Simulated assay, not measured.
Amino acid sequence: MKIEGQVALVTGGGSGLGAATAVALAQAGAKVAVLDVGADKAQAVAQQIGGLALTGDITDTASVEAALDAVEKAWGTPRIVMNIAGIGTAKRVLNRDGTPSPLDGFERVIRVNLLGTYNVLRLAAARIAKLDPLEDGERGVMLMTASVAAYDGQVGQQAYSASKGGIVGMTLPLARDLAQFGIRVATIAPGLFSTPLMKELPEEVQASLANSIPFPKRLGHPEEFAALAAHIVTNTHLNGEVIRLDGALRMAPR
Rank of each mutant, 00 (worst) to 15 (best):
G5Q: 10
V7L: 06
L9I: 14
V10Y: 11
G18N: 15
A24Y: 11
A24T: 13
A26L: 08
Q27S: 10
G29P: 06
V32L: 15
A33R: 06
V34A: 10
V37M: 13
D40Q: 14
A46S: 15
L52Y: 14
L54N: 09
T55C: 03
I58R: 08
A62N: 13
V64A: 09
E65Q: 09
A66Y: 08
A67P: 11
L68R: 00
A74M: 10
T77A: 15
T77M: 14
N83D: 08
A85H: 12
I87P: 09
I87C: 04
A90L: 12
N95P: 00
G98W: 07
L103G: 00
N113I: 06
G116W: 02
G116Q: 03
T117S: 04
G137R: 10
E138R: 13
R139F: 07
A146F: 06
A150K: 02
V155N: 12
I167M: 03
T171Q: 01
A175K: 06
D177H: 11
L178S: 12
A179G: 14
I183V: 02
R184L: 00
P190A: 04
P190C: 03
P190T: 02
S194C: 01
S194G: 03
M198D: 01
P202N: 13
Q206S: 01
A210W: 01
N211I: 02
I213K: 13
K217G: 03
L219F: 05
G220N: 04
L228G: 09
L228W: 04
T236H: 04
T236V: 04
L238A: 02
L238D: 01
N239V: 00
N239D: 14
E241K: 06
A248F: 07
A248H: 03
A252T: 12
